[in-house]
Each structure stands twice: as C-alpha cells, then as structure tokens.
C-alpha cells in the first residue's frame, strides 16, 4: 500500500498444519452401496516348459463384497491343443482341471485352450484362449545383496546378469526361497519390459525384492534363493501389470480411471491362459 516498487512480503507462519500434513492424508472406512454386475466365467492357468500336471482353474465372478472363496465351475470339458495334438484335462477337485503329469510345453508352439461348460455362463457355453510360447531365455547368473536402508527392516535384492536380446521382450520373475515359492500371488511376481536395457547386458538389474518386514520373505544368510524367469508375451505382461495396478491403491494424483483388466479369454470371460518357457537360476544368500 505504501511503496509498491519494493514489495517484499515476509510471511511467518506461527501456527500451521504444516505442508507435511498434505502428504499424511487420513483414511477412514466407509459404507458404499454397490450394485451387482452379471456373472462371468473366470479362467486362470498356464502351460510351461516344466514337465508336470499343468492346472487350469475355472471359477465365476461374484458381487464385490462377497466374502467366500470364489465359486468353482465344475463339470466342464477342458482341452489344450498345441497344433499337433489335443489333450483333455481331468477335473481333480471342483473347478480344478489338470493335464497328465508328463505334460510339458515346447517354445515356438501355439497353445489353444478350449472350454465347454455344462451350463452356460453369461450366455456362452464355449470359451477359448490362445497363447504362443516365446523362446527360452536363461540367465547367466544371479546374485543377492542386502540393503539395510531400504524400508523399515531392509530388503534383499536379487540381481540378474544376462544379455537382453535385441527384440522387445517381456519378462516375469518369481522368487523361490529354500524350495518355497515366495511370489505366490500375481501381485507378488515382478514383470518388466526391456525398455531401459533393450539389447544390452543387464549388469545386475534387480529382479526380485524380499521385504525383511514380512515373515515369509525373511532371508537368513546361506538360504537357497532361486529365480524362476519366464519370457512372456506382451499380452500377458499387460494383463499382469494391469492386475497389479487395479488391485492396488488408486491415488487420484497418478492413477487413471479404474478399468477392467484385459485378458485373452473369448466371449467376455475374465482371466488369462498363458504359455511361457521357464528357467531357474540359483544363488546362495549373501551374508549381512
């Protein structure tokens, strides 16, 4: 108001909910009524290069607040066609269909899953899904390193050493500790594209992270750490990344509108039928 030529304003905030408050937002449980959508078939299963009884699981969707395990879909005819032969899966328990124990996939082949339901779901009795199997990629080696300062109790990072092929590739990594699968859900597997190291030697990029705050992931030096690495298709990569996003926390600052994940099951079925090669690399957990 006096002389505006030099108008310097000094602000002293005596009392304030400091700027930090913004980032310490609060959460509260609330009741939201949700309508129920129509029922859809849910398919999950895969064919890998391992020789074992491969599993296809059929369930159906439920209302969002349903609190039991997903209802199984029984009595279906499930076959897998790899272009040279067709095998029929047997239902070992409700909704779980298995191949013979000597079954294994071969890279380069295309696998087609055919499902014939006993009773139609969402107006369809037959569902199919097709997945091609990529060539195998075996890691040169892996190593482990403990980061004391990551998270509250530290992290074990598993690093990989391999030459990424010049093509655009997608990978999935699972961690097995002392023979027990740690990455036991799709939100715990690590999927990645090769955008940042395409065609280069990945000189120790992290492909597995074990949070030492979780009982299941605690590593003691000398433990046997195995990485199951798979070269997956772009479709499957997208499926898993979308699943990880949609089932995680949605922050309005960064997330787009929530959307259904896109699988490869025909006729509006949900889920994915994947075919991919697997290879295993082992290391012994380093000391702290």
């Amino acid at each position: 108001m006096q002389n505006n030529r030099i108008n310097i304003k000094i602000k002293a905030l005596v009392l304030l909910g400091s700027a930090m408050l913004i980032f310490n937002a609060c959460t509260e449980r609330i009741d939201i009524d949700l309508e129920e959508s129509y029922t859809r078939l849910v398919v999950e299963g895969m064919v890998t290069t391992d020789t074992l009884a491969h599993t296809i699981r059929l369930t159906s969707t439920t209302s969002y607040y349903y609190s039991e395990t997903a209802p199984a879909v029984s009595g279906a005819t499930v076959t897998i066609d790899d272009g040279t032969s067709v095998i029929t899966l047997t239902e070992t328990e409700p909704g779980t269909y298995k191949t013979p124990t000597d079954y294994y996939g071969i890279p380069g082949r295309t696998y087609q899953l055919n499902i014939g339901l006993a009773t139609a779901i969402n107006g369809h009795e037959t569902y199919t899904a097709v997945s091609g199997m990529s060539p195998k990629l075996t890691l040169d080696s892996i190593s482990s390193v403990y980061h004391e300062d990551w998270g509250s109790d530290g992290y074990y990072e598993i690093k990989c050493y391999v030459l990424d092929p010049p093509s655009t590739d997608y990978y999935m990594f699972r961690v097995i500790k002392n023979g027990v699968l740690v990455s036991d859900s799709l939100t715990r597997v690590l999927v990645t594209d090769d955008r940042f190291y395409n065609g280069n030697y990945t000189n120790g990029v992290g492909i597995g992270f074990l949070n030492q705050s979780f009982e299941k992931e605690i590593v003691t030096p000398g433990d046997d750490l195995t990485i199951e690495s798979s070269r997956i298709t772009e479709e499957y990569y997208r499926f898993i990344s979308q699943l990880q996003i949609q089932s995680g926390y949605q922050n309005p600052l960064f997330s787009g509108p929530p959307a259904n994940i896109s699988g490869n099951i025909s006729n509006g079925g949900i889920g994915f039928f994947a075919a991919y090669p697997v290879s295993y690399s082992k290391t012994i957990a380093s000391g702290l």
């Binding site: 959508s37 849910v42 209302s63 036991d184 859900s185 799709l186 509108p257």
Partner: peptide, 12 residues
Amino acid sequence: TFPTGRAVIGNV
C-alpha cells in the same frame, strides 16, 4: 468408477 463384481485370479 466403482467395482460391481470381483474375480479371483492368481490369489488376487
């Protein structure tokens, strides 16, 4: 956009 149903895939 809210969920109106759910599926269980890969234990998720």
